[in-house]
Design a protein around this nucleic acid. Structure first.
Lengths: 188, 188
DNA sequence: TTTTATTTTCAGAAAGTTCTGAAACCATTG
DNA sequence: CAATGGTTTCAGAACTTTCTGAAAATAAAA
């Protein structure tokens, strides 16, 4: 019998871990890092102790090349560190960062790559249409332009707020995140 | 000479709009809806008035099939509505939702699909390892297990906070978002 | 130095996603 | 009803991303 009303038919710890690894991998790929990379990080984080390339290959059922590349990428992102064991020529990898740091790292990168250009282009359009507000234009155009400007402004505001919010979060640590979540539940 | 120190070499409004559409499309695809779909929404939103399939095809340089599918998907997501014009047999599409609604819709969907499974699997693991806390186990294992549980707890906390935060945001409207962003800047 | 263990690299394979275009479909008009 | 204008569908094309596996590189051991 199930000890708790656990949502799935998970029997062993390893199975539960695998399910987590899979779910985290799924989420990682949704957030723009490759599934394998996210899975490798999840594995290293959940087992807690350093694993070598073969361990990762075996557990994740992936090729050597893929394991090598993914682990290297994780090291480059600063989410995993290399480690050596006495009397063992293999290289070991340890999850350096916690989940929040990983999330933060990814989100930061994303903001730079995706949100910034959107904001820049919005500011651009706003700059270009701004003079229309003061110039004397046919009456039938005036309303359309006002609408356009309003829409633009609301857009800029939204993206801007989101941007600032995300930046603020990614500055803090996990504790701050929880603190903020709590505070927000009272405000909003 | 440039009227403002606009970040790009944009000359006309149409160009600026195109740049925005492209940026928004980029971002959309990063958030899990197809680039074309995001571009179509951006186009409809920025022009403000309803466009027909051909307008969208022309402006976005896409095939009829693609336009039809993308627009239909937008309608299904509730982000765009169909509209008819008297004396015109063509069907028109109008951006119904503002940017915040679109973002919210996407984020909601994502949470359900990606964050929920992660949380579920975490709770699962926690449930399975919980009895180890009270059972009498070899001393050398105790520390490892405590570490494991700590790591797990911190993970659950982080994802949980994030989840709650996202849900809270997606409940409110754009005004609430801005309000929250402002409030948060004082707290965190 | 040669041998052996391990890691990295990268061309192409596999898988996944998005797009096209032509045919089928639907609705209105003559 | 047939013709016309418009929309949807979907098989396969094109493109993108990710993965493999074997060869090349590196490093330690003999």
């Amino acid at each position: 019998m199930s000890r708790t009303e656990s949502s799935n038919t998970t029997r062993t710890l390893a199975e539960a871990q695998d399910r987590f690894i899979a779910a985290w991998g799924q989420m990682g790929s949704a957030w723009g890092i490759s599934r394998t990379m996210a899975e490798a990080h999840a594995l290293l984080y959940i087992v807690g102790e350093p694993l070598n390339t073969d361990d990762v290959m075996d557990r994740l059922q992936i090729s050597r090349g893929n394991a090598s590349m993914s682990l290297r990428a994780l090291v480059e992102w600063g989410l995993v560190s290399r480690e050596h064991k006495r009397g063992d020529r293999k290289e070991y990898f340890r999850a350096e960062a916690d989940v929040w740091t990983m999330l933060r790292t990814i989100v930061r990168e994303r903001i730079k790559r995706e949100v910034d250009p959107v904001l820049a282009s919005l500011y651009d359009i706003r700059d270009m249409t701004a003079p229309a507000r003061v110039g004397d234009i046919p009456v039938e155009c005036a309303q359309a332009l006002t609408d356009h400007n309003d829409r633009l402004d609301s857009m800029v505001d939204t993206i801007d707020s989101l941007h600032k919010l995300a930046e603020r979060f990614t500055e803090g640590d996990g504790k701050k995140l929880r603190q903020a979540a709590k505070a927000l539940s009272k405000i909003v």
